[in-house]
Amino acid sequence: MSESCRSPANARETPYEGTRDRVEEYFDRTATGVWARLTSDAPVSWVRRTVRAGRDRMRAVMLSRLPQDLTGARVLDAGCGAGQMTAELAARGATVVAVDVSPRLIEIARRRLPEGLPGRVAFVAGDMLDPDHGAFDHVIAMDSLIYYGSVDICSALSDLSGRTSGRIVFTVAPRTPLLMAMWTAGRLFPKADRAPVMVPHAPRTLSRDLRRAGCVRHLKVVERVSSGFYISTCMEVPE
């Protein structure tokens, strides 16, 4: 964490590296097949259809925050997963650095990238916050910060803000009764059996706390998307 980014009040959470490693293990070893199916056109259950529809809507919301023409722009797709957002960004003309902790998901994203776009995308398996990725015009982090508490989000945004000239658009898991129940239930499972648990945040409270902590000067709540079992809030660090 940068020295200028103080811990938000009442923040209690797992250190970033430990959570990142657990996310990597889950998506690279346990859930790769499920994720590949969910992000394709293959038939899925009703529950997963609601998640798919919610993710489609959220992707559209996040893309609407960036210019339609991204020619010449360098964009970080932080936590690119199977590459749907990456393909959209590249189709707008951006040079995309697509990063994910899961090498297997990176391979899926690379295979699925439409013809004509590979020259615009650099796929990287690793930490989305690695400073070696360089500087960017914009950053998009769709559902890749939802496993982290306020201290880690503070650190991530502080770091990315120092390397981004335009907008940082990201999502958090909102603090709703359903998500709080899921979060509590997840904590009851033995650690070895747990999927990465989303950390719920009240977006406006998070915005206030991160601004007070000096992580960002401004933080905007854009839109909440709720589709069955998919609930996520889009937020933005403006230019």
Results as ranks from 00 to 15, higher is better:
Ser144Lys: 12
Pro174Asp: 09
Met1Val: 10
Arg194Tyr: 04
Ala53Glu: 14
Trp35Ile: 07
Leu178Ser: 06
Phe170Ser: 01
Arg65Gln: 14
Phe189Ile: 02
Leu145Val: 10
Arg48Ile: 02
Met62Ile: 13
Ser161Tyr: 03
Arg57Gly: 03
Phe170Ile: 05
Gly54Ile: 08
Glu25Gln: 12
Leu210Asp: 00
Pro131Cys: 01
Gly72Lys: 07
Thr171Phe: 06
Pro131Leu: 02
Ile108Trp: 15
Ser158Tyr: 11
Ala78Glu: 12
Gly119Arg: 14
Ser45Met: 04
Leu76Glu: 04
Leu38Ile: 13
Ser165Ile: 08
Leu206Ile: 02
Thr184Tyr: 14
Ser64His: 10
Phe189Tyr: 08
Gly72Phe: 06
Val23Thr: 14
Leu179His: 04
Arg49Lys: 14
Arg212Ser: 13
Ser227Lys: 10
Gly93Arg: 04
Pro43Lys: 07
Leu129Ser: 11
Gly228Gln: 03
Asp143Arg: 14
Glu223His: 06
Ile153Trp: 05
Arg187Ala: 14
Val96Gln: 07
Leu188Cys: 03
Ala87Phe: 10
Leu206Gly: 02
Gly72Pro: 00
Ser158Trp: 12
Ala36Trp: 02
Ala122Ile: 04
Thr233Asn: 00
Asp152Ile: 00
Arg29Pro: 01
Asp152Gln: 15
His133Glu: 10
Asp69Cys: 07
Gly93Ser: 05
Asp143Phe: 13
Leu89Val: 12
Val222Ser: 10
Met58Val: 03
Ile153Val: 14
Arg204Ser: 15
Pro118Arg: 11
Ala213Ser: 15
Leu105Ile: 01
Val51Leu: 11
Arg6Glu: 05
Pro103Phe: 02
Thr184Met: 07
Arg175Tyr: 10
Thr19Tyr: 08
Ala192Arg: 15
Ala156Asp: 04
His138Thr: 05
Val75Gly: 07
Ser4Gln: 12
Ser227Val: 04
Ser4Glu: 05
Glu13Arg: 13
Arg37Phe: 01
Ala195Val: 04
Ala87Cys: 08
Arg74Lys: 08
Pro238Lys: 09
Glu25Arg: 13
Leu210Met: 10
Leu113Lys: 03
His138Ala: 05
His133Ile: 06
Ser207Pro: 04
Pro103Ser: 04
Gly79Ala: 03
Gly126Ala: 07
Asp132Cys: 08
Thr233Glu: 05
Phe136Thr: 08
Thr14Pro: 01
Glu107Lys: 12
Met198Ser: 10
Ala181Gly: 09
Val61Thr: 03
Leu113Phe: 02
Ala135Trp: 00
Asp41Arg: 15
Leu63Arg: 06
Val47Ile: 09
Asp21Tyr: 11
Glu107His: 10
Asp209Gly: 01
Ile140Trp: 02
Pro203Lys: 01
Arg22Gln: 10
Gly83Glu: 00
Val44Met: 04
Val216His: 09
Gly149Arg: 13
Glu115Val: 14
Ala195Leu: 01
Lys191Asp: 08
Ser161Pro: 06
Asp159Pro: 00
Cys5Gly: 05
Val172Trp: 01
Phe27Tyr: 15
